[in-house]
Computed example of a mutant assay.
Amino acid sequence: NNYLPIFKHVNFYEKILDEGVPAMMEAFEGMNNCFENANFSHDNVDYELSKKMNIFSNLSIMLSRMHEYLHKNDDAVRVCDILLQKQLPSHLRKTFDSIKARVTKQVSQGASQAKPPAGGKGGKDAAQPVQEVSKADQVQSEVLGYLELIKNGNKDMIQKALDVLVVWVPNEHEEIELEVNSELWCRLGRLAIDQNNNSFTKIALHCADMVIKNGDQKIKEKRYMNIPVTRLRWYSVSECLYGEALYRLLDTKKQEKESQDKLLHASVARFVESCNIASKAGIGYLLLETCKCMWNALLGILDAPN
């Protein structure tokens, strides 16, 4: 409890005393043993299980980041592997996959997906807090690993991430798959466009396009108010990314004026749509950032004839 205010800081790991780490490890091991030895059955339902798992996950994230900060890579990977074998929501799986990729400098390709041996007092028919990882989660884990490597300067991983992600078509009836797929395409596109290279900018353009192509009928028909905000924000990001990529492909020295104007108009149109989506989603900061990008593009068409 003494550390709770500190954990709110982004760099909390720099403020933890040396004595605090063993205490966190003891709490982690104790909670993990409770999950492994618990008696889960239809006759013994724990209605607080979700809340307990959430607390355990938050503690594990902080502990794994502490190990990462202290360069105890094996300990950090062990924590991540244990949590990746639990029933976790998508956003938590992404966190542990990212930490593991940063620490190992490698991409997970199913090693962490193996199920642990059955345990607990409930016998073989007891329901364990472990699940078989879906194909979508495996792709997500692998792509997140590539994204972390790209952040560390390995731009060759962009094509590998693209090759993995392009084969995954999300189930349009699964909201989580639609959201995660959109997020991964946007994040990959952002890393590609940040390379400041025309070839990678075209990859970013493709990534932005795939966000809409892999969406459900609601986004294709622009029924924005019927889409959850958590997914809608990524469509706004993708439109902004599309507009930014078009703008960066503009070359005032090599392209004719007519071609430049077409690119600028197309770019601004994407920014406008991004603002429209962000406005409907009620995300002010995203709306503001897109407006900044749109203003930069508008400067180039103030003297355009149409």
Rank of each mutant, 00 (worst) to 15 (best):
Q106G: 07
W185M: 01
E29I: 06
D163T: 15
I283T: 07
L178K: 04
K292S: 10
Q140D: 12
G110N: 05
F28R: 01
Q159E: 12
S182T: 03
S236V: 03
G300E: 04
R65E: 12
V166D: 02
M294K: 08
M294A: 13
G189C: 00
R190C: 07
I219L: 10
T230W: 07
S64A: 15
L232C: 12
E48N: 14
K160C: 11
K280Q: 15
K105R: 12
F35Q: 04
L144T: 04
L184P: 00
R233C: 08
T95L: 07
K257R: 15
L4E: 13
S64P: 01
V143K: 01
P305N: 14
G119T: 14
V10H: 09
R78D: 09
P305A: 14
K220P: 01
W295L: 13
I6Y: 02
N296V: 09
Y235T: 03
V180H: 02
Q87P: 02
Y47R: 15
E142L: 07
N37E: 11
T290I: 01
G123A: 09
K262Q: 11
P22W: 07
A136I: 05
R223P: 02
N276I: 07
G120A: 12
V143I: 12
S64F: 04
K135S: 05
L246F: 10
A38I: 04
I227Y: 03
N154D: 15
D251T: 05
N197K: 07
E14A: 07
Q87R: 11
N196W: 10
Y224N: 04
E273K: 15
S267L: 03
G122Y: 06
D261I: 14
Q109Y: 10
R102I: 03
Q140A: 13
S279M: 13
H9F: 14
A281R: 01
L147V: 06
S182L: 02
Q159F: 06
L232I: 10
F28S: 01
W295P: 00
C291N: 11
A126V: 04
L147W: 01
T230C: 11
S236R: 03
M225T: 05
E183N: 08
L178W: 02
R233A: 09
L246A: 03
I203V: 15
E148T: 03
D18C: 09
L205M: 15
R102W: 05
C291F: 08
E36A: 08
P305D: 14
D46E: 06
I283V: 12
E289F: 07
N44W: 06
D74M: 11
Q195K: 09
H265E: 09
A114T: 14
K151G: 08
K124T: 06
D216F: 05
